[in-house]
């Protein structure tokens, strides 16, 4: 039995006109760090709210720790931890008051589970008499995580904990999750940042309410069809235009300082043919090198291969 299971979950809003979650099924194993990766509107928040029993699915079944989200919602509420995407603690209670409030709600004490939050709480402890509303974004995030952990949950749900957070703080947050995982807590986390996917054991790539792919990050990258090249030239903007007009290229898009190019049929001399084409367009400083695709490359590939109802599913 998985720690979290979903079977054919479907959720619509606005009297059925907006499809938010479209027949989603997956299982999270006990102790696993599982990521839902996708942009806004992918259906991540709806799934979190269904699993935390805050929202009912239109159809399908789901369980958390073996409890049904519909029938056994009370059992689920008392054992899981949930950190919503929007800061939801009491702004006019202090740091310490918020923490002891949540501990009391779950019939425990700060002392009982202090080990679990110690490392995180120590960073905000100097501000424990400050009202939560007066904290910086990073400190709010740490407090919210402490409050979600204080009853030693079996499953921790983190909805976009790193959105709007700078690159350095994001790395620190993921380091922290790695250490929590070692304590045996099952973690289900969502993020729109593709580069964070490799921090998870398994991921589901989501777009417009659907799962595009679900596997370990390594396998998802391995499933990339064909070879991928990184291309650079002195004039990048014209380069992109010329690559898009190149018939043999299946896709080409900007990726940092390079343009990533994939071909329709992988040929041994793809790169040489492309080099000649670009030289013919008077490009200078041409660099073409084969690269290993990233999760984002795979995501783009899946998205463009199945240009689903890109705009039927608008809101969360």
């Amino acid at each position: 039995m998985g720690a979290v299971t979903l079977q054919n979950i479907r959720k619509t809003y606005e009297k059925g006109t907006v499809l938010a979650v479209d027949d989603v099924s997956f299982t999270v194993e006990p102790g696993e760090l599982f990521g839902l990766i996708g942009p806004d509107g992918a259906g991540k928040t709806s799934i979190f709210r269904i699993l935390t029993t805050l929202l009912l699915a239109d159809s399908g079944t789901a369980t958390v720790d073996g409890h049904d989200v519909r029938k056994d919602y009370r059992a689920i509420r008392s054992t899981v931890g949930y950190m919503p995407g929007k800061f939801s603690l009491y702004q006019d209670l202090t740091v310490e008051e918020n923490l002891s409030f949540f501990a009391t709600l779950f019939e425990t004490t700060i002392a009982a589970n202090y080990d679990l939050i110690k490392e995180i709480y120590e960073q905000i402890e100097p501000f424990k008499t400050r009202r939560a509303g007066q904290l910086s974004g990073g400190m709010k995030q740490k407090l919210a995580l402490c409050c979600a952990l204080i009853h030693k949950p079996t499953v921790l749900f983190l909805d976009e904990p790193t959105t709007g957070v700078d690159a350095v703080s994001r790395k620190e947050f993921w380091d922290m999750l790695g250490r929590l995982k070692q304590q045996g807590i099952t973690i289900l986390v969502s993020t729109p940042y593709m580069d964070e996917a490799t921090r998870c054991e398994r991921i589901a790539l989501m777009q417009s309410g659907k799962i595009l792919s679900i596997d370990t990050p390594a396998n998802i990258i391995k499933a990339y069809p064909g070879k991928l090249y990184a291309v650079k030239a002195d004039a990048m903007h014209p380069l992109l235009h010329h690559l898009r007009a190149y018939p043999a290229a299946r896709s080409s898009y900007a990726f940092g300082e390079f343009v990533h190019v994939a071909f329709w049929d992988d040929q041994a001399d793809d790169d040489e043919a492309l080099r000649q084409y670009l030289a013919g367009k008077k490009h200078t400083g041409i660099v073409i090198k084969p690269i290993t695709p990233s999760i984002e490359d795979r995501f783009i590939d899946l998205m463009t291969a199945a240009p689903a109802n890109a705009h039927a599913t608008a809101t969360r």
Partner: peptide, 20 residues
């Protein structure tokens, strides 16, 4: 100000085409 936060990777690139 963070115009592409949460935007999917394909649309994010289309957004940059508009900037160019």
């Amino acid at each position: 100000d963070e115009p592409t936060g949460g935007v999917d990777p394909v649309t994010r690139r289309q957004f940059w085409d508009l900037i160019y």
